[in-house]
């Protein structure tokens, strides 16, 4: 039973890692890098390391995602579509 979970986790990790390097939109890259961290959490739990899994869940999934999102907002990449300026999230409030 463990081996099935392991194989699913491993394939999820590898696919997400491919998306991190080869996806076009940085939204996708951000989501995929958080996905890699989720896969790592599952893998650490399977490897009997609950402390490391909790650290990865708090730091890798949440904190690093927030840091990357803030950076994307600061370097003008925080937009859904590059062709349409009205989709800028910071402007959509007005």
């Amino acid at each position: 039973m463990n081996i099935i979970i392991l194989v699913i986790t491993v394939s999820m990790l590898v696919i997400a890692a491919f998306y991190v390097v080869w996806a076009d939109s940085f939204f996708t890259v951000l989501a995929a890098s958080s996905m890699v961290s989720v896969g790592l959490v599952l893998l650490f739990v399977l490897l009997r390391a609950p402390d490391v899994a909790l650290t990865e869940a708090v730091v890798g999934v949440a904190l690093t995602g927030v840091i990357y999102a803030l950076t994307l907002a600061k370097i003008d990449l925080w937009k859904i579509n590059d062709n349409d300026d009205n989709n800028d999230v910071s402007q959509s409030k007005q």
Partner: peptide
């Protein structure tokens, strides 16, 4: 440049898995 930083994160993740595996 941003994708290089993402690659750095992936590299660190792989090394962490190897380290945890060493104690399993």
């Amino acid at each position: 440049l941003l994708r290089m930083v993402f690659g750095l994160g992936l590299l660190e993740a792989g090394v962490n898995i190897l380290l945890v595996k060493a104690g399993y």
